[in-house]
């Protein structure tokens, strides 16, 4: 299947592992919209994890301009970022996704990927982004997916749905991990994803 065909027909209920793997292997800079400086919020520790795995992280939150998140200065909006960004990771509810995507579509150059966090899904916004060739992931967490494909998450009894007979290095701080393990399943999604979809349709 060609990349183009894949993009047009992306099934947002079940992403092939190769789609997620390709994104996480190729993007270098990630702007996180809704990044929180509160260290018990999921956005904070996803930001921290992705930074530790070597991504160039940019926190976007208008309420915290002038402050830093783990040494990275907050910016108010996507258009305030003065350099190209590979991926926009949106930590907002489904009902707040569309304006962020619309702003992302005004960037030059365009981002390669728009990622909506676990629980967040907006099919209209996704279709707009995909129509200009941007890859979209919805209702997933990049930290969980990175941890899953590298099998780092297996420490918590989570089914990584990958296998490998290779000896991997023990992960240390700041190390990029190999995501090229053999996939067991195609990344099925289940009721929790359907529930998020139903919610976004209701709201």
């Amino acid at each position: 299947m060609s990349d183009n065909k894949k993009r047009r027909h992306m099934n947002h209920d079940a992403y092939p592992d190769n789609y997620i793997r390709g994104i996480l292997n190729s993007v270098k800079s990630i702007a996180m919209v809704g990044a929180s400086p509160v260290n018990v919020r999921p956005s904070y520790f996803a930001f921290k994890y992705l930074a530790q795995r070597g991504y160039d992280m940019i926190p976007v939150n208008p309420g915290h301009v002038g402050k830093e998140l783990l040494g990275k200065p907050f910016v108010a909006s996507l258009s305030d970022i003065s350099r190209p960004v590979d991926m926009i990771d949106i930590f907002r509810n489904s009902s707040h996704i569309l304006p962020v995507v619309e702003e992302a579509l005004t960037l030059d150059p365009l981002p390669k990927v728009i990622w909506m966090q676990l629980g967040a899904r907006d099919d209209v916004a996704a279709a707009k982004a995909e129509s200009v060739g941007i890859k979209v992931v919805m209702n997933r967490c990049p930290k969980i997916e990175y941890g899953r494909l590298s099998s780092e998450i297996s420490w918590m009894g989570v089914n990584s749905r990958t296998l490998s007979s290779k000896r991997a290095p023990a992960p240390t701080q700041g190390m990029r991990l190999s995501l090229n393990r053999m996939s067991v399943g195609g990344g099925d999604t289940a009721a929790s994803d359907r529930a998020a979809k139903n919610k976004s349709e209701q709201s």
């Binding site: 190769n18 296998l163 067991v184």
Partner: peptide, 16 residues
């Protein structure tokens, strides 16, 4: 990396 699904006996030996 293909998304081929390994069989039960393969998982019984390798998974995790």
């Amino acid at each position: 990396m293909s998304d081929r699904l390994p069989g039960f006996a393969t998982l019984a030996v390798h998974a995790g």
